[in-house]
Amino acid sequence: MTLDDLRVFVAVCRAGSLSAVARELDCTQSAVSQHVKRLERETGVTLLERQPRGVVPTHAGRVLWDAAADGIAGLDLALRRLGDLVNGDSGSVRVTTGGTTVRHFMSEAIVAFRQHHPKVNLEFQTETSSRSCFDALAADGLDLAWVTIGSPVRGIEQHPVVDLPWVLAVRADDPLASRTRIDAADLAGIRLIRLPQNSTSGARLDAAFAELGIRSSSDTSVADWDTALLLAELGLGHAIVPALPGWPVPGAARLLRLIPIPNLPPLAVGWAVRRWDALTPLARVFADAVASSCRERTSDAQRERHARPANTDQ
């Protein structure tokens, strides 16, 4: 049993496919299968069960998967920390997050971090959802994942940083544009630009609507919050989105209104890690810098919205 055997096995369990892992590792499917067979010979149990659309771990396989994933993650972190000790202030910080998150939550912190740590290698890996960020964090030796805080995930710690209130984005000429707040009753029957169904934020919004008894229609869906704003600005519907630090966004200052919706519970966002106390010193400094910047920018934005609650004009 080798570390490579365990790494390949964990990758197969995560992907649910021998061929997908073979493509990822640029090797043959037979080579991937040999790693798994070696583990099965040494453990004396069947670890994978073939299904019509791939493979899934057996009960024994899941036991090994959980243990191997935790062990490999801990070993990778230890090696990273040893590398930082050798390299001093020239280590690396690896982050996974959504495509637009860096601009909204991290831009100022990245600049400040780079000024204080010019030799550190910053790596950003883009994922499409919090779920895929969790998977990447568990599998790829990353330090940090910026996510929408959701249900507990095995082997992952979630640390909320800021709570984002929801706002309704409407065109300046919309009948609702003059409102200073939107109540639950105002949302009934409106045509929404829908957030991704597989996203944590979309699921949270759907749950809040169900609890409040709100029914809405939708004929447009988007992959991210920025696109929802753009389509709302074009008059293709109303968008309910979290009020992000850094908004109003370019192009939306004149034509769009962002109106608070106090009835909806805020959306928590923050860091996900495998073990907070095992982060490298550089990763901890970066995480703290982003958290501090987000809290400051969110407080500034909230003060501005209280001063001009329904208007994003400059």
Rank of each mutant, 00 (worst) to 15 (best):
P57W: 04
R131T: 13
R171H: 11
T148I: 11
D219V: 02
R204F: 07
G235S: 06
L137F: 04
L144A: 03
F105T: 01
T28R: 04
L205E: 03
L231T: 04
R308F: 13
T58G: 12
T96V: 13
V290D: 01
L168I: 01
G71Q: 15
A145H: 04
D300I: 10
V63K: 06
T126Q: 13
L212D: 08
S132A: 08
S199G: 11
L64C: 06
S130P: 07
G235T: 10
T298V: 14
V269A: 07
A78P: 02
V12F: 01
D288A: 14
L75A: 12
T101F: 09
C294M: 15
E211A: 15
A207C: 02
S33G: 13
L75Y: 14
D313K: 03
P52D: 11
L48F: 05
V12L: 00
G155E: 05
L39E: 03
V249P: 00
I149N: 04
D173S: 15
T298Q: 13
L264D: 00
L212C: 05
Q197Y: 07
A112R: 05
A139G: 11
T46I: 10
P262E: 08
R191F: 07
R62T: 05
H238E: 07
Q51S: 15
V162R: 01
H306M: 09
P266Y: 05
S30W: 01
A287P: 01
I190P: 00
L258F: 01
R194T: 11
L39I: 01
D206Q: 10
L85E: 13
I193K: 07
Q51P: 02
R23I: 08
R94F: 02
A78N: 07
R295W: 00
G99V: 14
V269K: 00
R80P: 00
A60M: 08
I182C: 06
G88T: 13
A68L: 13
H35Y: 04
V21Y: 01
V170L: 09
R191Q: 14
